[in-house]
Amino acid sequence: MRIGSPKETYAADESLFRTRTQWVWFGILLLSLALYPFVANLYWLFLACLICINIISATGLNILTGYTGQVSLGQAAFMGVGAYTVAWLDNNATTPFILNLLAAGVMTTLVGLVAGLPSLRVKGLYLAIATIAASFILQFVFINWESVTRGTRGINIQPPQLFGMEFDNPDTFYWLVVPVTVLMVILAANLFRTRVGRAFIAVRDRDISASVLGINLPLYKLMSFAIASFYAGIAGGFYAYFFGSINPESFPLLMSIFFLAAIIVGGLGTILGSILGAVFMTLTPELLRYGVDVLEPFVQDASALLSPVRTLVFGLLIVGFLLFEPHGLAEIWRRVRRFFHLWPFRN
């Protein structure tokens, strides 16, 4: 059991991790992330990379939807913008990897700002609808702007290079994507230690009285949208490098629903929730695949069921969590932790 944690300065009390235990756990997390490649096989490294990409995107969406209360169904399409930016630069310029990735983030932010403009006029759900429209308009652009996207044939991307090394495999790519993911998550967490993050939450909880307290609603809505788009752009850039080829079908509406499901399952409005949700939702299809393999001898054409079952399960998870566990896995995690904090005095 832990009792209190005295501090001598406000700076210490304002820090990201307030207790020594939290620092220790963070250290253990970093250490295990560093050791993971030495114990995991290629398949698990592949999954780890995919999870990281999804964590980046889910974190961005959670800033917008979970913290600012603006639903977006455009996260996948925005990832597409990032991916195509990387693909175009890779094929038409000799700019280095890091620059391409940043360009993907910036480009997506700009596109996101334009798509987010309607949210200035109206509240809540209209943004969701505007992002559906933006998704389809972007999809149209991916298919029809042939000179840049090569249309439905898709476009190939060379593996990223840094310091003369080529990251063409999950076991090397891991060292690229994990540090960036850790950084992006910490950046997001920092946001909510400051006035900017508080303003986002204020917009979500009571957008009118927030304005009377001096918060410029359109500015913060748009800012939140821009940040979410930036995260989508970075995730999309990684996606393009990771898979080595993209086409307009790589970023369907279902993928946006996937990310929405991830933050709902993980926990809306918590950083931890974005991580847990992305891990859970990336592993769920793998679990389903495993289940289908088991069923294969008994059910005819079991593998054909994989995609529909996945769609069904995504939907059920969204509905189920919103109905029965609206604060998601993060809340379950908190309950477990509290139990051990108080143990053995209360149970």
Partner: peptide, 13 residues
């Protein structure tokens, strides 16, 4: 609203 998004996914599945 998000619940209805989930429902649509359930029905398609």
């Amino acid at each position: 609203f998000m619940v209805t998004i989930g429902l649509s996914s359930v029905f398609i599945g």
